[in-house]
Simulated scan of single mutants.
Amino acid sequence: MNNINYVNLGKKIKSTRKERGYTQEKLAEICDISTGFLGHIERGTRKLSLDTLFCIATVLNVSIDYLLIDSANKSDNFLEQMDSVARSLNPSAYNSFRKTVKILAEHIDEM
């Protein structure tokens, strides 16, 4: 069974690549694939290996889940909002943020 929507995956890769300031050429070079193949990935006309997906996610500094999860409205996705906030913090603030969220999650039933 094939449940991956490669068109949506490709759109997510393309938009994230552009947000991060990478050209197709640079991302393809880093992930050791051709620019043409990356173009096919972004259009959803070719399937990519797990290794290639992992490389793209790593270079773009996002999780594989982020690339695979289809969301109709980015601003309504709580986890994406939290991820965006966390990525904007310096390392010290990020650690405090992460610890705070963890503590809240552990005690959510008490609230």
Rank of each mutant, 00 (worst) to 15 (best):
I64C: 14
T35L: 03
K12Y: 02
Y6D: 04
G39C: 10
M82G: 04
Y6I: 11
N77C: 13
N73H: 13
T52W: 01
I103L: 09
N90D: 15
T58P: 00
Q24I: 07
L89F: 03
R87S: 13
D76K: 13
I108R: 10
S92V: 13
R17V: 04
G44F: 02
G36N: 00
V101K: 05
K102V: 08
K102M: 09
T58W: 07
A28R: 02
Q24W: 02
I33V: 12
D32C: 10
G39S: 13
D65T: 13
K47M: 12
A86K: 12
Y94N: 07
T100P: 00
D65I: 04
N8G: 10
E19Q: 10
E25R: 07
S88L: 06
G36D: 08
T16P: 03
Y94I: 09
H40I: 09
L104P: 00
I69M: 07
S34Y: 03
A105M: 10
N8M: 14
I33Y: 03
T45M: 03
D32Q: 14
E25H: 08
V85W: 06
I13D: 01
R20C: 03
E29I: 00
E80I: 13
G10P: 01
N95R: 14
I4R: 10
T35P: 06
G44V: 05
N61A: 15
A72W: 01
A57V: 05
I103S: 06
L67N: 08
K26D: 01
A105F: 09
H40Y: 15
L53T: 09
G39A: 11
E106C: 07
I103Q: 07
S84L: 14
N5E: 08
K11L: 11
L48I: 15
L53K: 05
D65M: 03
C55F: 09
A86E: 12
F54P: 00
A93N: 12
K99C: 03
G39N: 05
L67H: 11
